[in-house]
């Protein structure tokens, strides 16, 4: 039984694609046959973050329009077994994605035996974003501890609850998860950043994980290698924990406390 997972946020630049890449890689490394789909038609970037940009031949729009078969468009990841990427097209045609078309692609992927279908949503609430979440069984809402990102996350949660297929068909609603990214415990400590508790209180969605602000994320995207593969980095480990929780394990939160600084360190040190 496949699970359709959407990674969404409303606001741009909060880490949706980084998260989609990391989570899908983590699921595949756990032995789940996983495909990650880029829904950002016209502005694809998942291929870069996954490091498969030079192997893109066909994309999801080609598949929907019958110009290529699904297996021609799926790119198998070279480093991670069980992991496939379905890129977005670079067409400017906004109507290239249709509800029926996406539904058919997802059904075909189910028949191919994929355990997880991860949909990387574009920013905003336009067509691409709506189609990315429409068929979802579960949603990962990515949010930064920053005022506009939290507001947009709340808006997306409202849309998930009212505009998805599950909502329209009156089925059990989408299971929601909150993933906080770019978290800086030391800035929370000084009272200049919203805390995990603040965000949970406002959004009231179960917490999937907290990814610390980390130089490893930029390094990973520079190299085209999902950050979860860097097992020695804080962000990589935080994503591994989140994947374990997604699969039902109970894992304590890490990287949310700041290291206590000595009094002298606070006097003379920079924060």
């Amino acid at each position: 039984m496949s699970k359709v997972l959407v990674v969404t946020s409303g606001k741009g630049g909060v880490g949706k694609t980084t998260t989609s890449a990391a989570i899908s890689s983590g699921l595949a490394m756990a032995g789940k046959k996983t495909v990650v789909i880029d829904f950002d038609v016209g502005l694809r970037n998942l291929d870069l973050i996954m490091g498969v940009e030079r192997r893109v031949v066909y994309d999801i729009v080609n598949v929907i329009q019958g110009e290529a078969g699904l297996n021609q468009a799926l790119i198998r990841h070279k480093e991670v077994d069980n992991l496939y990427v379905l890129p977005a097209s670079q067409t400017k045609d906004k109507d290239a994605l249709t509800e029926e078309g996406v539904g058919k692609v997802l059904n075909d992927l189910r028949e191919e035996g994929f355990d997880y279908i991860v949909c990387d949503s574009p920013a905003g609430i336009e067509r691409g974003a709506q189609l990315a979440m429409y068929y979802a069984d579960e949603a990962i809402v990515v949010s930064n501890p920053e005022i506009s990102s939290v507001r947009d996350s709340d808006r997306m949660l409202g849309i998930l609850a009212s505009k998805s297929r599950r909502a329209k068909d009156g089925e059990t609603s989408i299971k929601e998860h909150l993933l906080i990214t770019r978290y800086a415990p030391e800035r929370v400590g000084t009272g200049e950043m919203l805390s995990v508790e603040d965000m949970l209180e406002i959004l009231a969605v179960p917490l999937l994980g907290v990814i610390p602000e980390s130089h490893a994320v930029l390094q990973a995207s520079n190299a085209g290698r999902p950050v979860i593969l860097d097992e020695n980095t804080d962000a990589g480990q935080a994503y591994s924990d989140a994947v374990a929780r997604l699969m039902g394990e109970e894992v304590p939160m890490r990287f949310i406390e700041t290291e206590k600084k000595s009094f002298l360190g606070r006097l003379f040190g920079r924060s």
């Binding site: 920053e146 005022i147 939290v150 709340d154 808006r155 009272g191 200049e192 919203l194 603040d198 406002i202």
Partner: peptide
């Protein structure tokens, strides 16, 4: 007054209104 506190208060008012 730490600015995160302000952010939280503003968000709570705004989100209650939008919901």
């Amino acid at each position: 007054d730490p600015s995160a506190k302000m952010a939280k208060e503003r968000l709570q008012i705004l989100i209650a209104h939008e919901r």
